[in-house]
Design a protein around this nucleic acid. Structure first.
Length: 513
RNA sequence: GGAAAGGUAGCUCAGUCGGUAGAGCAGUUGGCUUUUAACCAAUUGGUCCUGGGUUCGAAUCCCAGCCUUUCCA
């Protein structure tokens, strides 16, 4: 009975689906297509005439193309599958490159070896088609590891031409709107996204190994909390209520601390309805982890260890080199431990003058003018300092720095410092000029938490998550918490200049027409 | 939201002073049974982002719009 409504998973009701399918299967009139497309469709039809299904079926393999080339030995019977990425036609002998995500291997196709019937089918293949090869490994006279084809199986006909074989795809519109073409054409993109998959899996494994439970909390929320950001609004029809996509999972993860989950994490999407830039995508991936009885310094140790572990495992060490299109090193990030830890106020004072924190608001404004830091008239005093921090400290920080003890106004969910209640026990980890990870000693006093949220919310009282405050009244253990911006971490570790280069399908404007 | 740069063949890009729309690769045809950016010969392919305007004539100059990138907010 669980699957009673499963039909909804597969799309609209049946009658409508049929009409949709008939539209999908309708072949566009050939004369409306360009020559390149028409010729490929004709080859597809000719394959059918020869009794071959151009879209294939299950094919058992013994090896993968890239792996076979990496650990090659002669005289082995193999079955491999992949996409044709290059074709060198010598008449009755052809050489083609068969590729997978990890590499390529050369296939030698000879008319005499596969027979006239198979050769006739083979002649209808193009770069971009998926094929299976049964054959035997050998070295050519130039020493190239190769597979001599004995059987060729058509797995899928490609009806459109592939991108340039050595320039790849550079048009950002194609790169981002048709990521599959970017992945086909650009090895660098393949490597970045493979690395991202492996690193995300390793982050999960790392935390699970240390006793953290991965949980899933609501992305559809009644009150969007846990951060200061504009949410996406939506509506639940059956409940007749407006809802929001979460801007952070924090308040739900803390409910789990109340419920007795002492080590939890969530690694998934949050959504912020704000500007799109080199560093911002409206949906982004964040890790949040909470550890009962820990504090922000213990969390800093954890993050430092985790990031170094990822760098050593996947980036060849703790020196991360960023390169430009020409392959020249433009920046080197040194992750050597221990990472610097310094109070926010010391760093601001070092950048803006030792007397910064003794200045009044007017004097701070004057100093900003002298330092070339732009500020607006309506900024509060703590916001002026924050602006100085962002422009003169954050943007100039390449190697990791844990910035500790920021002003309490900036972080309403963190515990105030025991000795100075104007600051909070937190860190902001800065690497590569960007905030990678915040960490707190979590505020667990329900009354203080209410005041701090009310101060932040101002008149917008409806923004306060009463159910979260109720949960705190039942008792939340003291805990350390972290967030890690996974996309920005990936940029730092892979050398990507834009978040769009580490997000498979970044948000772009809808193309009209 | 503001500023700058860009949009030309399937891909990567030229296009001079406003005067017939170009190259490489891909494709097609022919040749070639060990090539690997294969090679040789021939050849097809264009909404020059869109819409106005100036002009005898616009890819090119002007205006508006769309999309992208970068910087700023």
């Amino acid at each position: 009975m669980i699957f009673r409504d499963a039909r909804s998973c597969f799309g609209p009701p049946r009658s409508r689906r049929l009409s949709v399918m008939s539209e999908e299967t309708a072949v566009p009139p050939v004369e409306d297509l360009g020559t390149l497309l028409r010729i490929r469709r004709e080859k597809m039809e000719q394959l059918r005439v020869l009794g071959v299904d151009p879209f294939g079926k299950r094919f058992e393999t013994t090896h993968a193309p890239g792996a076979l080339r990496d650990s090659f030995s002669e005289g082995k019977a193999v079955r491999i599958a992949g996409r044709i990425t290059a074709l060198r036609d010598m008449g009755k002998s052809n050489f083609l490159d068969l590729s997978d995500l990890n590499g390529r291997i050369q296939v030698f196709v000879n008319k005499g070896a596969i027979g006239d019937g198979a050769w006739e089918i083979y002649k209808h293949l193009d770069i971009g088609d998926w094929i299976g090869i049964a054959g035997e490994t050998f070295l050519t006279k130039t020493g190239e590891p190769s597979v001599k084809a004995l059987e060729v199986t058509v797995l899928s006909k490609s009806l459109r031409p592939m991108p340039s074989k050595w320039h790849g795809i550079v048009d950002p519109q194609i790169k981002y709107r048709q990521r599959y073409l970017d992945l086909i054409a650009n090895e660098r993109s393949r490597e970045i996204f493979k690395k991202r998959c492996l690193m995300v899996a390793e982050i999960r494994r790392y935390l699970q190994e240390r006793g953290f439970f991965e949980v899933e909390t609501p992305m559809l929320q009644d009150v969007p909390g846990g951060a200061a950001a504009q949410p996406f609004q939506t509506h639940h029809n059956a409940l007749g209520m407006d809802m929001f996509l979460r801007i952070a999972p924090e308040l739900y993860l803390k409910r789990l601390l109340v419920g007795g989950f002492e080590k939890v994490f969530e690694l998934n999407r949050s959504f912020r309805n704000e500007g799109i830039s080199r560093r911002h995508n409206p949906e982004f991936t964040m890790l949040e982890a909470y550890w009962a009885y820990a504090d922000f310094e213990k969390m800093a140790d954890l993050v430092e260890d985790l990031v170094c572990h990822l760098a050593e495992t996947f980036c060849g060490g703790l020196r991360i080199e960023h390169r430009n299109a020409e392959g020249e090193v433009t920046k080197t990030i040194n992750l050597s431990r221990p990472w610097k830890r310094a109070p926010y106020r010391d760093l601001v004072a070092a950048a803006a003058g030792a007397d910064w924190w003794t200045l009044d608001a007017a004097a701070k404004r004057t100093r900003c003018e002298q330092l070339g830091v732009e500020i607006s008239a309506e900024m509060e005093e703590y916001e002026i300092s924050q602006q100085v921090f962002e422009k003169l400290v954050e943007e100039k920080t390449i190697d990791p720095v844990f910035v500790t003890h920021v002003s309490k106004e900036l972080v309403p969910l963190a515990k105030q410092n025991a000795a100075d209640d104007s600051i909070v026990d937190v860190y902001e980890l800065i690497i590569n000029g960007a905030e990678i990870s915040p960490g707190y000693s979590e505020l667990n006093d329900p009354d203080v938490q209410r005041r701090r949220l009310e101060e932040q919310a101002g008149e917008e009282v409806q923004k306060i998550d009463e159910d979260f405050l109720l949960a705190l009244e039942y008792g939340m253990p003291p805990a350390g918490g972290i967030g890690i911006g996974i996309d920005r971490l990936m940029m730092m570790l892979t050398g990507a200049e834009s978040i769009r280069d580490v997000v498979l399908f970044p948000q772009l404007k809808r193309r009209e027409g």
